[in-house]
Design a protein around this nucleic acid. Structure first.
Length: 878
DNA sequence: GCTACTCGGGG
DNA sequence: GTGTACGAGTAGC
């Protein structure tokens, strides 16, 4: 039988562990595979190690393994065998107290087994054995395995997913998961369950509701339905920190065992992981859609409402939080709306995960790193890297040390302080540059690790001067011919496999295959890029400053030498570069000509490089505007199969910030667009002046002036004066019922007046209602000017030029000077952009810079004035 | 400018 | 469960 691994655990029978592999087979049945044989063990060494082990009565054997971080140390090592994994910590501590050094004595048994058998999370197994009958697990099939081996398969089994959402009564007024009553539980099934795709359970009866007499009975129902449907994945929104912990807490209150995993004995449990809670359900995988969305997408907020609008382009049925209690006790219709709301939330979460295929990446990471899917989701990069390190080091005769103690970590932090040197950043040549070729070193750090054989196992520890590679940081590494490093070997394999995956991707036929291969190549890149960081990470088992610094020192030297080479041989100026990238000013030539030159340079440079190092020509910045190190904007052109594709690219320039009003991000965006695409500084200046005029004339819609800040504590708790807090106080006095509460976001605008600035914050609705005037000076000085002044000074336009000629002039004068300066259009009048080709209306210019039809844009203004700003149909579309 | 602390999502 | 493991954004210096 072939099964795909979802989860692994063990049970003790006759004082020996039996490993259980939970998964699903090709036929779609859930399977539990029992396997005896693997025993826990770790390594011990040190003075008199053997005597001590013998005297203490341990089962042990001499081991020829070497310690990864110090392979040349003469050390007699022993493998110590145990029976019960749960007793390992005690035994480990005992041996330590007897003066022994221990290694790999902190590896969870399931990981130990997965590593030793070379199995992966979400990987496939070929299992030979007998079907058995057992009540200990809930699975369609249980197998007593005689032989198991891994097998390779791209596709996934038909996994079942359950999406759920609960509604509770917050009678205490607090989010207390122990005391709040659960009134509704909604389920959506990926596959029909008892002929249904969804269910709503409630302690109140209603249309289409599974009614339960009380909460306890409903929670019994929850257990029965989950176990009956037998999902592989349980998903929900913030399910790790709310829904499941609530369910578990309430079950415990009623003395119901929270057993809805695939082991009939083991409870689902909540584990605190660095202040966040994670829920584990044996044999199943808990997927918190909130956590995934937060990792995968960048949004200002992550409540399910905005997430659905952004990702699914649809809103969610909404019931105000304060209405939940009222509707539960309210009319039939009201209760119906509540039921609908709960059902909808589950359905939306299921849709987010399935339609956007959010699991693809995590499944690929599990397969590649060997980590169980649940651990890929719940832990970070470190867990994946160390899983991979463990199996690869072991395969090649090396063992890893235990994790560093707190004391050791503090020591490392102190040692690392200021000594871990990063990449080389070239001081940017300020101004607007035209036709800049962008190069970068392909997978720079992984390639350096591979090429220079950088690894803890190859680091020359003492003055051994043999056949070694000397890095610019001074650290020396044995050449591959002497001893190949394990980290270089892993990284090299990952990069090689990525090449294979990408090749296969090109010829992939089905969408499933394309997705899986794309996720695979992505995960391979992520993994190979993570090793450098790991070497310098204080918690890493293979932490070593000398190796980490060696990597970056090679990078710095590479980029410096390349700058020199390109400058000397070709006479081009390098206007900017950061760590692994180079911006080379070509200045003259068409896109196609620069493309030719770029590729020639890349090829030439690559020829001079050692090993797998490669310089790649990436793209062209038709215009490049560097502001400072790490901050620039560019009009970038990529050569695609269909022709050149352009876009505005910014790095480190915040276009959206919560403490800026919309007008700022819009103006920054528009000015950049004009500068980059039009290349006309005067025009950009005029645009800015137009915005100022709009402000002075009160022509800017108030929504664009709103600033949002959140109130994190009681108003009294704030020492200094802050506008949003002062506003909160005002509203408290005016209409206490609408007063902002802790955690609320407060929107405000600054109005004209003689009061202190902080006292002039006002509610936008109040401003409209009372016809108050906003304060243009505030918006100019505190909002627009800081980012825009920086932008303009970088291209040689001073503040005084921006605001007029002389020193600080009155706003009226600014206004007059604007009128004289022949602005063709006042920004305040611009309501959007209209495509000059197809006429489609856009509120904002899309990131591509042009409409889908390929044509450029014209401003659309209230007065019907229109001016073409861009006709960038550069593409050679066929 | 940098570092320390907080809070996210959920009813 | 042989594990302790975030991270962006803001407040405060």
């Amino acid at each position: 039988m072939e099964i795909q691994i979802l989860d692994v655990d063990y049970t003790m029978v006759d004082n020996k562990p039996i490993v259980r592999f939970f998964g699903r087979n090709k036929e779609g049945e859930s399977v539990c595979c029992f396997y005896s044989g693997p025993l826990p063990y770790f390594y011990a060494g040190g003075k008199d190690a053997e005597d001590i082990l013998k005297k203490e009565g341990f089962v042990y054997e001499k081991s020829g393994m070497k310690v990864a971080i110090n392979p040349d140390a003469p050390l007699s090592l022993f493998r110590v065998w145990l029976n019960d994994p749960s007793k390992t910590p005690d035994i480990r501590d005992k041996l330590k107290s007897l003066g022994l050094d221990v290694y790999e004595a902190d590896i969870p048994f399931k990981n130990r087994v997965m590593c030793d058998l070379d199995f992966s999370g979400m990987g496939w197994l070929d299992v030979q054995g007998n079907i058995i009958n057992t009540e200990s697990v809930s699975a369609s099939r249980s197998v007593q395995a005689k032989e198991i081996k891994r097998t390779e398969k791209d596709e996934n089994a038909q996994f079942k997913m359950l999406a759920m959402d609960i509604e509770t009564l917050m009678d205490s007024g607090k989010m207390d998961m122990k005391s709040n009553t659960i009134i509704i539980v909604s389920f959506v099934f990926s596959h029909p369950y008892n002929g249904k795709r969804s269910m709503v359970l409630s302690t109140r009866n209603g249309d289409g509701v599974n009614y339960y007499e009380n909460e306890k009975a409903m929670l019994e129902g929850v257990k029965n339905i989950i176990n009956g449907f037998d999902p592989d994945f349980i998903t929900g929104y913030n399910i790790n920190a709310f829904d499941l912990p609530s369910i578990i807490a309430r079950m415990e209150k009623y003395k119901l065992r929270p057993v809805f995993g695939r082991c009939r004995q083991k409870r689902a449990f909540v584990k605190k992981v660095s202040a966040r809670e994670k829920v584990y359900v044996p044999g199943r995988v808990v997927i918190d859609a909130y956590e995934i969305v937060k990792k995968d997408f960048s949004m200002p907020r992550y409540d399910l409402g905005v997430v659905c609008e952004t990702l699914l382009q649809k809103g969610k049925t909404n019931v105000k939080h304060s209405e939940i209690g009222t509707f539960y006790h309210g009319t039939k219709e009201q209760f119906g709306r509540l039921v609908e709301y709960a059902a909808n939330d589950s359905a939306l979460v299921m849709e987010i995960i399935e339609r956007l295929h959010l699991m693809d990446k995590y499944i690929a990471l599990a397969k590649i790193s060997g980590t169980l899917l649940q651990d890929v989701l719940n832990s970070g990069e470190t867990a994946r890297i160390e899983n991979l390190l463990l199996r690869e080091f072991n395969k090649h005769g090396y063992i890893l040390p235990c994790k560093a103690s707190d004391r050791e970590m503090t020591k490392r932090e102190a040692e690392r302080e200021g000594k871990l040197v990063g990449g080389y950043v070239i001081e940017p040549d300020k101004g607007i540059h035209s036709n800049v070729a962008v190069f970068d070193f392909k997978s720079m750090y992984p390639s350096i690790i591979e090429t220079y054989n950088i690894c803890p196992t190859t680091l020359v520890q003492s003055g051994n001067s043999g056949d070694v590679i000397k890095t610019p940081s001074g650290a020396m590494f044995y050449k591959k011919s002497v001893r190949e490093g394990i980290v270089p070997k892993i990284v090299s394999n990952l990069m090689k496999e990525r090449g294979v995956a990408r090749k296969r991707l090109k010829s992939a036929k089905t969408p499933e295959k394309v997705r899986a291969l794309d996720a695979e190549q992505w995960a391979l890149k992520i993994m190979s890029n993570a090793f450098y960081g790991h070497l310098g990470y204080v918690r890493a088992r293979i932490y070593n400053m000398d190796t980490a610094n060696a990597v970056t020192s090679c990078g710095r030297e590479l980029i410096k030498k390349t700058v020199e080479y390109v400058g000397k041989k070709y006479g081009y100026k390098i206007v900017y570069g950061d760590t692994d990238s180079l911006m080379v000013k070509i200045e003259n030539g068409s896109l196609d000509e620069i493309y030719e030159i770029g590729n020639k340079i890349a090829e030439d440079v690559t020829k001079q490089l050692e090993g797998s190092l490669e310089l790649k020509f990436e793209k062209i910045f038709k215009r490049f505007l560097p502001l400072t190190k790490k901050r620039y904007a560019a009009w970038s052109f990529d050569k695609m199969e269909a022709g050149w594709k352009d876009r505005i690219e910014t790095k480190g320039i915040e276009t959206v910030r919560r403490d800026w009003c919309k007008l700022v991000s819009e103006t920054v965006g528009a000015v950049l667009e004009i500068l980059l695409k039009g290349g006309n500084i005067k025009e950009a200046e005029n645009h800015f002046k137009g915005v100022l005029e709009g402000l002075v004339n009160g022509k800017i819609p108030i929504q664009k002036l709103e600033i949002t800040k959140s109130m994190t504590k009681q108003t009294k708790g704030y020492k200094g004066m802050q506008p949003h807090i002062e506003l909160a106080k005002k509203i408290q006095k005016r209409s206490p019922s609408e007063a902002p509460k802790i955690g609320d976001r407060i929107r405000y605008v600054i109005v004209k007046g003689t009061d202190l600035l902080c006292k002039r914050a006002e509610d936008p609705a109040f401003v409209l209602e009372k016809g108050l005037k906003i304060d243009p000076k505030y918006y100019i000085d505190n909002q627009l000017l800081p980012p825009l002044e920086r932008l303009f000074t970088s291209i040689g336009v001073s503040k005084s030029e921006l605001l007029g000629n002389g020193k600080q002039r009155g706003l009226l004068e600014i206004l007059n000077s604007i009128k004289e300066s022949q602005t063709t259009l006042r920004a305040a009048d611009v309501t959007g952009f209209v495509c000059s080709g197809c006429g489609k209306f856009f509120q904002k210019v899309p990131l591509s810079g042009c409409c889908e039809c390929g044509a450029g844009f014209v401003f659309s203004s209230q007065g019907g004035m229109a001016r073409e700003i861009e006709t960038s149909a550069i593409s050679q579309k066929q």
